[in-house]
Design a protein around this nucleic acid. Structure first.
Lengths: 187, 187
DNA sequence: TGTACATCAGTGAACGCGCGTTCACTGATGTAC
DNA sequence: TGTACATCAGTGAACGCGCGTTCACTGATGTAC
């Protein structure tokens, strides 16, 4: 066959991207190497030209999933220029976010996995938590939001989306998102 | 060997109890049949005298984990007779809860798994969500807490414990619990 | 600028371990007489 | 109340599939001359 160096970097990236999405959708244990490679338009044999082991890939994908999910939320928040905290809350508690865990915030999808994970995973998770806290506190409308209010806000965002995905009743799921949104926007 | 009918019921229960704890600690995919049976003081061969399949066991254990975790929290909450909502918040956001996921509230530990799970799992999860909401709204100090406030409270409880387990820094973990506790107790 | 050659990303098959499941067997339980 | 027998919870080994990993091989890339 034969492939260029640039092509290798693209393959590498594709594998990581696919995995970062799949672990958010299915957790860190389920997706298999052969399946991930197939989804990246490759065959399983070439996997070890890119990663030392499945664990190695998963570890890298965890970090990518965390940063990627947050970057998406942050940009959505800042699209609302005059009220970025409000923008974040709207984007986070949107039905579109709930319904797309694979591309959404990994604090929700990988929270339990991170709690069971190694130190590197937890540090990457923590970095995103701190980043969100800064974002919420710094971007608050009155730019006076305390660190405490930011922690309450972030906890509620994460918990609300987690639960909204886990309940069977669509109406209750919608109600959780809508109600928590309202509650967080009260002074 | 030979065992009585009562002994069978006890074995059955032991397997379920062990599994309900382990899936909260490790998620629904990791714990293996042989390992679970060993922890229940049995050998893997006898497993199918109690359950049709591993999936069957896991499904039953999911329900048990959810009800058990909530029962524990509810009793802790009501130990504080004159301020049960406050008691629930204290019990939920306690370091002891954070450090014992295997016996703690399954809304946190199984939230992501339920989101990926089948309808039965989601219905069991939803039942616990509704139960908590009733508990919080009904047990509020001033017994005036709106359903909205209950949803915000529950979301924050779940999100805070999830994150407190997933960050690497112990100080930040403690701060999340303490701060969210303070925030939720403000009027 | 062309030509010969080494590299190595990717392929597809095979390996081997782990784990869910099955099975022949044991012997106390509990029923039938 | 005692005795013979059927049941079946539990055992320990074996089976077999799935999945992570390895391997021999291919052929375009990209370097050396």
């Amino acid at each position: 066959v034969g492939y260029s160096q640039a092509a290798k970097a693209e393959s590498h990236d594709r594998i990581l991207q696919v995995t970062a999405r799949r672990i958010r959708e299915e957790g860190v244990t389920r997706p298999g190497v052969a399946d991930l490679m197939k989804e990246a338009d490759l065959t399983q044999g070439g996997f070890y030209k890119h990663f030392n082991s499945r664990d190695d890939l998963i570890a890298q994908a965890e970090v990518l999933a965390l940063t990627e999910g947050q970057a998406k939320m942050e940009s959505a928040a800042c699209r609302n220029k005059d009220a970025p905290r409000s923008g974040l809350i709207d984007a986070y508690l949107a039905a579109g976010h709930r319904d797309s865990p694979g591309t959404g915030c990994a604090l929700v999808t990988l929270g339990a996995d991170a709690g069971r994970g190694d130190q590197d995973f937890k540090q990457a998770y923590e970095k995103q938590v701190r980043s969100y806290l800064d974002l919420i506190a710094g971007l608050d409308d009155d730019s006076e939001a305390s660190r405490g209010e930011a922690m309450l806000t972030l906890s509620a965002l994460v918990g609300a989306v987690l639960m909204s995905r886990a309940v069977a009743d669509k109406d209750l799921s919608d109600e959780i998102l809508k109600t928590v949104k309202q509650q967080l926007k009260r002074p």
